[in-house]
Design a protein around this nucleic acid. Structure first.
Lengths: 261, 261
DNA sequence: CAGTGGTCTAGACCACACT
DNA sequence: GTGTGGTCTAGACCACTGC
């Protein structure tokens, strides 16, 4: 049997009706779920601190250790950031520390700091109807409105990355080329502050490809130069896909770095 | 100040002389270090179970909770595997479950199970002197003996991966082309059972490249077909590099999959 | 100094696997 | 049933931050 929570705060465990799986979930998982709900509902905003462990323990009527374990898991998923002596904070893509969390391209010599900040140029930005492929990736219906953006990232004024990206129209209502061009900083930080959309994780499919003419020109590459194709689907809370992005990376001066554990 | 361990088992915390950093390390980190030493010394071998938490707690004279936290960290680094009700086991590359832990290439349709087991063909295997580049990667001196292997991996009899790899001569004394060809299973599993070398983590640098003639031929690819170049350095305990591997992957039927958190 | 997260303990009980 | 890892609690104390 399962321990059920009695909470002043939320309606606790759902269904529980499936006979096949007893679906035992430990207390700290349920607490984790409740904290997740509060994050999702923006009860605490990116960059802000959440209540202390003791406060949360009192609120959920559990011990501090149980809250701690819930927070530990959220912190290891980079949803929260613990800072000893200060508190626990909602993670944000705006912090310098984790600015390029999803960008694994690094220069062959030196690091991102050597190169200084990226230059961002919006090449194109328009609304259109989702193709079947894009609809599938974003869990929309074919024909739904999506925002399509093409941009070039340069490091030390050398064009290095060309990206096409597609965003679902509804959550990003009001996003324009001007808005993007006027914002200097990580795109995911803009999504957070302006649209309340926080990217939590992503999946990438990587291939070696030969670019077409327009791609070659934007990256100023000669013919027959292969590029790294990086197709990314980024997810917000609840595993909801919120962005499809196709990047083309120069890998003669940079490489995609991956650590395997 | 630091809590110092009094142990029947090992000489506990080193130096402690540096004034700059007080170098506080919690008890469970010290326990983690001791367990790591036992792993390194092959006190417990890959696939075997280690003593229970209670036994280790008694042995190190700490509480079960402290041992638990040490094991938790080792388990999250994939050095140990916990199995509820059975025990804690030394991780191994031989288990089906984690067979291709470092191989992130997956077919565009289906998964690795769809394709069945890989076919491995040893193209070349010889001993030679390390170039400066290879010596640097393997933390050897230029001119030290290294073993160089070239092989082709095929899935459903389609050549998909060409790999060149270099191993330090000393730890892999006695490894021959025959030995490799006669072994059917993951190479890292052979390293474990035959040479006591367990790969613990790896770093990869990924690029898009055009293959040369011999690479093209071994993978049966037409000219001007880009390939994914995956350069990997694999480390054993203590961050000691034990393998340099350059893979060339077909990415027209497969892709390199990466999950970002 | 008070408040926060981090460590450590001791004990109770639960879920799971084997016998 | 016995032994394993997994959860939960309560309380003490430590390390870090900022007032």
């Amino acid at each position: 049997m399962n321990t059920t929570l009695t909470l002043t705060d939320a309606p606790a465990a759902a269904a529980e009706s499936q006979a096949a799986t007893p679906a035992f979930s430990p207390l700290y998982q349920q607490i984790k779920g409740l904290i997740l709900q509060s994050l999702q509902a923006s009860e605490w905003k990116p960059g802000e601190s959440i209540p202390s462990e003791m406060e949360l323990a009192a609120r959920y009527r559990v011990s501090q250790g149980t809250v701690r374990k819930a927070i530990d898991e959220l912190a290891s998923g980079h949803l929260l950031i613990r800072k000893q002596g200060k508190g626990t904070f909602v993670a944000t893509h705006a912090e310098h520390q984790v600015q390029y969390r999803f960008l694994k391209l690094v220069p062959d010599q030196g690091d991102l700091n050597t190169e200084g900040p990226a230059q961002r140029e919006i090449v194109d930005c328009k609304r259109l109807r989702a193709t079947a492929e894009i609809a599938r990736a974003l869990a929309l219906r074919s024909g739904d409105t999506v925002l399509q953006v093409r941009r070039v990232l340069s490091f030390a004024n050398v064009p290095t990355i060309l990206e096409d990206l597609w965003l679902p129209g509804t959550p990003f209502k009001g996003l324009t080329a001007e808005r993007l061009a006027g914002y200097h900083g990580p795109m995911y930080a803009l999504f957070e502050t302006e649209f309340g959309v926080r990217m939590v994780r992503a999946e990438e499919k990587i291939r070696a490809v030969l670019p077409d003419k327009s791609q070659r020109e934007l990256l100023q590459r000669p013919a027959n130069t292969p590029l790294l194709s990086v197709e990314r689907i980024a997810y917000t809370y609840n595993d909801t896909p919120m962005e499809l992005r196709r990047g083309f990376y120069r890998t003669d001066t940079h490489h995609y770095r991956n650590d395997l554990n």
